[in-house]
């Protein structure tokens, strides 16, 4: 990790906290900021499997929902406070991911098939939970406090989310600087070649998958806190796709790009929803789609490419 990465992380944190303080008086902006930061955290976690390893994982919301529901149920049924429960939730999500990952990587499922497989995992879990939970919404108990990761004010919730986001960023940077990261990049460049030179691609893909699903599962409970209820609908294929898309638009493998994309698009989506949603229905999503097409066609290296261009221009 270089000095300049550390500096940018510190700056990013300072900026985020400053914004947090500035809008702390306004619940709307505070909630929005919290949601944006949480979304960014999910995208940053996805970056480990998608960006660093190059696997098109579309099951983000499956791990998120699984972790969130397990944590909530542990709290409601067994009284285990979420501050402990999230670790179990994350472990369960990672467990499932590894269980499916072993045969999947063993049999060499990759590219579009890996994407479709993970996308259908969301649907399968959605259907199974639908079958066992029924259609009902389950409401979190009326208890608040840090112990339950469910503080009374949005500012405190924002702080929790921010800590998660920071942790995910550090994990990303740590992995990408480590030996594992080196192998993961090899896999991303050309899986067959790295296999040929003796890299245990299955193992490293599995490690990336486990870390990503653990973080996503553990943070899933925070999504439940924002919803204040949970149901099988948390297994949302659309959400998983949009998380992956943020990672892509951000420029695969670039953590700053991924976070920037998450922040920009989530905030833009909310701006369009709140300004235009009431006037022209669907326009926000339409523009969102147009943005995807434009970025995909004109700037396939994503926002990270844009950053690099700006940097070069600055140095001239």
């Amino acid at each position: 990790m270089t000095r300049s990465t550390l500096l940018s992380i510190a700056l990013f944190q300072a900026a985020l906290l400053a914004v947090g303080f500035l809008v702390s008086g306004n619940n709307y902006y505070m909630l929005l900021l919290t949601q944006v930061a949480l979304f960014a955290a999910f995208v940053a976690a996805w970056n480990i499997i998608g960006g660093l390893t190059g696997q098109l994982d579309l099951a983000s919301s499956a791990y998120m929902a699984l972790g969130g529901i397990v944590t909530s149920l542990l709290w409601m049924r067994l009284g285990l406070p979420p501050v402990v429960g999230v670790w179990v939730g994350g472990a369960v999500a990672a467990g499932l991911a590894v269980l499916i990952g072993i045969p999947t990587f063993r049999f060499g499922v990759r590219e579009v098939w890996y994407a479709l497989m993970t996308a259908s995992l969301v649907v399968i879990l959605n259907n199974l939970f639908r079958y066992f939970m029924g259609p009902w919404d389950f409401y979190l108990p009326n208890k608040w406090g840090w112990l339950y990761l469910r503080p009374r004010t949005y500012f405190e919730l924002f702080i929790i989310v921010d800590v998660v986001l920071l942790a995910v960023i550090l994990v990303n940077i740590y992995i990408s600087g480590s030996k594992i990261g080196y192998y993961l990049r090899n896999i991303k460049e050309d899986e067959l070649v790295s296999e040929a030179v003796g890299v245990d691609t299955r193992l490293y893909k599995l490690i990336a998958l486990a870390i990503y699903s653990f973080i996503t599962g553990a943070a899933g409970f925070l999504q439940v806190v924002i919803y204040s209820s949970f149901s099988y609908r948390l297994f949302d294929a659309g959400l998983a796709i949009s998380i992956a898309i943020m990672g892509i638009i951000g420029g695969l493998g670039s953590i700053s790009g991924a976070i920037a994309a998450a922040v920009v698009f989530r905030a833009l989506g909310e701006y369009l929803r709140s300004t235009l949603g009431g006037v022209i229905p669907g326009l926000d999503l339409l523009l969102y789609g147009v943005a995807l097409i434009v970025v995909g066609i004109l700037k396939p290296e994503g926002l990270a490419g844009l950053f690099n261009q700006l940097r070069r221009w600055w140095r001239k």
Binding site: A115, A244, L286, G289, L292
Partner: peptide, 13 residues
């Protein structure tokens, strides 16, 4: 493949 997915998902939206 990811870029193709992004563009076609965008088209779908």
């Amino acid at each position: 493949p990811l870029i193709q997915i992004a563009v076609t998902v965008g088209l779908g939206f």
